[in-house]
Computed example of a mutant assay.
Amino acid sequence: MAKKKMILDLDTGIDDALAIAYALTVPEADLIGVIGSYGNVLTPQAVQNCLDLLDMLGHPEVPVFAGPTHSSTTTTFSVMPISQRIHGMNGVGDVSLPHSSRTAEQMSGRDFIIEAAHQYGDDLIVVPTDPLTTLAAAIKKDPAITHLIGNVTLMGGALTIPGNVTPATEANINQDPVAANEVFQSPLPLTMVGLDVTTRTLLTKKKTAQWRALGTTAGKKYAAIVDYYIDIYADVHPHLNGCALHDPLAVAVAVDPSLVTTLPLNMKVEVDGPCAGRTIGDEELLDQPVHSQAAVNVDKDRFEQLLMTHLTTLFQNN
């Protein structure tokens, strides 16, 4: 069976760093490129984090592209204070990474998605774990890609539980509700991996200690990065007893949908009013063919075991 081709679209904070590591290890897909965009950090920092992490993990062949620097409805962007607190000022828990000498590709992240869609078609998986600005821009430039891309599995939204920015909104969707709505309302085959399931998957310091014990650069750096995340979670979300594995879960579901139970539902994103950014079923499309689904339950134990197996193997060698 031919491998799928995967693009990660990240605002490279800590869980995005875990998503990169997971994507490099899954046997079902080849990571053909990574896009660094605004969100947890500014775009240049996201790009540098992607380059540094990929090189540290032994994969300097994976190209990195720059995404947008702000939302589709603004002209500037400032990182939210809560994002700086959760991910650190540099996005990776203020841990210093070995510096990559590479730079971003000249092609934009938007155009890379378009090119890959035409090249790989149904074999292409796009995994955005950031605001959906890049993907919306690609759709706007070339609407044909909505009928070419095999699947979009995004980390974002909240359907059955409250958001983490406001009671109605999750952070990635909150950054650009208009772009998110354009993606949700497009014909793309879409799976939403939102807070409904990601906050059920956790990592603890008992697990990161296993990575540190490997004695490798990657093992020690990732342990330090995730320990920072766990400490912040203990303060901000003490009821979870660990840090949530938001972005790596989206990568896992992209290649193994059986990890989650989904609700088939045509969705929309509220773009204005007090509930701007809310992801919810579209009442105008209830009787239309369904092209999207929202994850509402997860095989927590199996995913957490997969993550530890994949990442420990990767860190052993780097």
Rank of each mutant, 00 (worst) to 15 (best):
D176T: 00
Q305Y: 13
T153G: 12
K221C: 10
G36D: 05
Q119F: 04
V165F: 09
I82C: 12
A295Q: 06
I225A: 03
T204W: 04
I7P: 01
L286I: 13
L195S: 11
L195C: 06
A276F: 09
P98F: 09
V126H: 01
P167F: 08
H310F: 06
L53M: 11
L307C: 12
V298K: 00
N164R: 08
V255W: 01
H147F: 12
R102H: 13
L265M: 14
Y38H: 12
A213M: 07
D94K: 08
V269P: 07
V165W: 02
A104K: 09
L214M: 08
F77N: 03
I114K: 00
L57C: 10
S108C: 01
I35Y: 00
N241R: 15
S292K: 12
T129M: 15
S100R: 11
F77E: 02
V92I: 15
A250W: 01
A171N: 13
I113F: 00
D122A: 15
A116Y: 02
M1V: 09
A234D: 14
L24M: 06
I113V: 14
D235P: 00
G93L: 05
W211G: 07
E170S: 08
A294K: 02
L18R: 11
N49T: 04
D130K: 10
T312A: 10
I161Y: 11
D196P: 01
N297W: 15
G150R: 02
C275I: 07
T313M: 12
V183S: 00
K300I: 14
S186F: 00
M1I: 07
T309G: 08
I20L: 09
T208N: 03
T134G: 01
A138R: 00
K207D: 14
F303Y: 10
T216E: 07
A137H: 07
G36W: 01
L263H: 13
Q45L: 13
T217Y: 06
L148F: 06
T199Y: 15
L18I: 11
P68F: 12
T153N: 10
T12F: 09
P131T: 05
L42P: 08
L53F: 10
K206A: 15
S186E: 00
H239M: 14
V296F: 03
Y222P: 02
K207M: 13
T25R: 14
A66I: 01
H99Y: 11
H310G: 13
G13V: 08
D52H: 03
S108V: 01
I86T: 15
I35A: 00
N266M: 04
L214K: 03
